[in-house]
């Protein structure tokens, strides 16, 4: 992999069996993402955005082709190695937040650090720092049921970035949020991207998100239709 390249996919194909037929979700995708990018996979439903994101995140494996993330070939990783890669280097943000319901905001953010066996004192500092980044330090003791949608998504962002991963993958992060919260969330992620040099890749079809992207990759029917670089309006 070329220096500075965080992710490289070559001729990536993903086919799902569907009864007796087969559906090609990704067809010959070859892409490269560099460290610090703020990129979005856009396109209509069923275009393959989430599938590509899942494969990059080692949650799924390709049918053929290769995907290299942080120097690791995803298609060759065992379950345990994939889990370790996600634990150390990749943060996930989901459309439905996916916070653990019985834990407080603090405990949700702390969870990845517990898996990494981070010492308690350092863990506490990192969790409070992450909650501070997303402006929720004062809601640390609240449980997900006590948080609004925007606040829940900000906790999910704090959870994704608390371990300072090289890569954050966000699947429709604003789909369940109103316009005000969507902009707030996006600004938070832009801030983290600029300050922590974390690479963000979004799967979205939300225009509000697209306004913040530096790179927009349009997928259609499992193929890359366009790959554009921007100087986003919203960042100016």
């Amino acid at each position: 992999m070329v220096d500075g390249n965080l992710i490289q996919t070559e001729n990536l194909v993903k086919i799902y069996p569907m009864g007796s037929s087969r559906i090609t979700a990704l067809n010959q995708i070859s892409l490269t993402f560099r460290t610090g990018e703020f990129a979005g996979l856009v396109g209509p439903s069923g275009s393959g955005k989430t599938t590509l994101l899942n494969i990059i995140g080692s949650l799924d494996s390709p049918t053929s082709g290769s995907v290299e993330v942080l120097g690791r070939k995803i298609e060759t990783l065992s379950h345990r190695e994939a889990a370790e890669l996600r634990n150390r280097s990749i943060g996930f943000i989901f459309q439905t937040f996916n916070l653990l319901p019985v834990y407080t905001a603090y405990e949700n953010v702390e969870f990845p650090l517990l898996l990494l066996r981070t010492p308690a004192a350092q863990r506490k500092k990192m969790v409070m720092e992450a909650l501070d980044w997303v402006g929720l330090a004062d809601r640390a003791d609240a449980k997900p049921a006590q948080l609004s949608g925007g606040q829940s998504q900000r906790v999910a962002i704090a959870r994704a970035i608390v371990k300072k991963p090289e890569l954050v993958l966000a699947d429709e992060p604003t789909a369940n949020l109103d316009a005000k919260n969507s902009h707030h969330i996006m600004k938070t992620m832009v801030h983290l991207n600029e300050n922590l040099e974390t690479t963000f890749i979004f799967a979205t079809h939300d225009e509000k998100v697209m306004r913040y992207l530096k790179r927009k990759i349009t997928l259609d029917d499992g193929r890359v239709e366009k790959d554009e670089i921007f100087e986003p309006e919203a960042r100016k």
């Binding site: 379950h79 345990r80 634990n87 150390r88 990845p112």
Partner: peptide, 15 residues
């Protein structure tokens, strides 16, 4: 199930 998926995404092994 969804919680398990989240735990896996966060890097918890199946075992």
């Amino acid at each position: 199930r969804k919680e398990m998926g989240t735990l896996m995404a966060l890097g918890m092994t199946r075992s």
